[in-house]
């Protein structure tokens, strides 16, 4: 456990050495900020005209996760592939660190980076809470944030796993992006066409559990299991890829 933390901490610090991290941070926070402003504008206009519904921040968390489909691959792409390219992987694999600890440390570092962004977004519900009466439904907000963390965890673990397979960060990026596209947009597309299998297809969708349940305040066991399983799968892929590298 100690090693995981040591590696995560270095990785987290390292993010702030690279311009990419700031670009990613900006690419998350800027659209969210604009979206939040728009929500405030529209709902206040609606309120003036005596109509509309009370605004909430759930849409912002949804947008956060949607942006993550594109940005998480950029956050994870170089985590292990770049160590392989630079040769520092040899250093890590001859240090007294288990392969799993190395992969998990990388994942945790990426998680901490995304959590930092998520922490900044907490400002939106806090601000909004002052504008709406009788205040926000905090239970839903918390459920939404737990969902956000779960989805991010799954995405980053898969990204780290794929990064361990490649020695080229762009290859890792595109494969990760392709996988996320599939799991987010395409996997449950035929659900409407084949109603018999729609339950299964929806279950496999990365967006379904978050959008339909967790982000609406219902923490379903299916959703939690799904994201945790993907996290475990990603870390397993990463650890296996490292082991295979050793044998090659």
């Amino acid at each position: 456990m100690n090693n995981i933390w040591t590696i995560a901490k270095r990785e987290y610090d390292n993010y702030f050495n690279s311009p990419l991290a700031y670009v990613v941070m900006l690419a998350i926070l800027l659209p969210l900020g604009i979206y939040f402003t728009l929500i405030l504008l529209f709902s206040s206009q609606n309120a003036l005209m005596g109509g509309g519904t009370a605004p909430d921040t759930l849409q912002i968390n949804w947008l956060f996760i949607f942006l993550m489909v594109f940005l998480a691959p950029a956050i994870t792409m170089r985590l292990i592939s770049d160590e392989a390219r630079m040769g520092t992987l040899e250093l890590m694999l001859t240090a007294p660190v288990k392969d799993f600890e190395f992969v998990a440390g990388k994942w945790l570092g990426a998680m901490m980076f995304v959590l930092t962004a998520a922490l900044v977004t907490l400002i939106f519900p806090i601000v909004l809470n002052n504008f709406v009466s009788p205040g926000l439904d905090w239970k839903t907000v918390i459920s939404s944030y737990i969902g956000l963390i779960l989805v991010a965890s799954a995405m980053l673990a898969l990204g780290v796993g794929i990064s361990a397979i490649f020695s080229n960060q762009f290859a890792a990026f595109f494969v990760t992006l392709g996988l996320f596209f599939f799991l987010w947009f395409f996997v449950n597309m035929p659900a409407g066409l084949i109603p018999e299998s729609s339950d299964l297809l929806n279950y496999l969708s990365m967006s379904y559990h978050f959008s339909q349940n967790i982000n609406r305040g219902s923490m379903t066991l299916a959703g939690i299991t799904y994201y945790l399983s993907l996290t475990a799968l990603g870390l397993f892929i990463g650890t296996t890829a490292i082991e295979i590298r050793r044998w090659r």
């Binding site: 390292n14 050495n17 690279s18 630079m86 040769g87 520092t88 992987l89 040899e90 250093l91 001859t94």
Partner: peptide
């Protein structure tokens, strides 16, 4: 074991 690999891999940004 202390090991110095041939390529001397280092984190150049550290």
């Amino acid at each position: 074991v202390g090991y110095l690999p041939e390529t001397v891999p280092l984190y150049t940004d550290m």
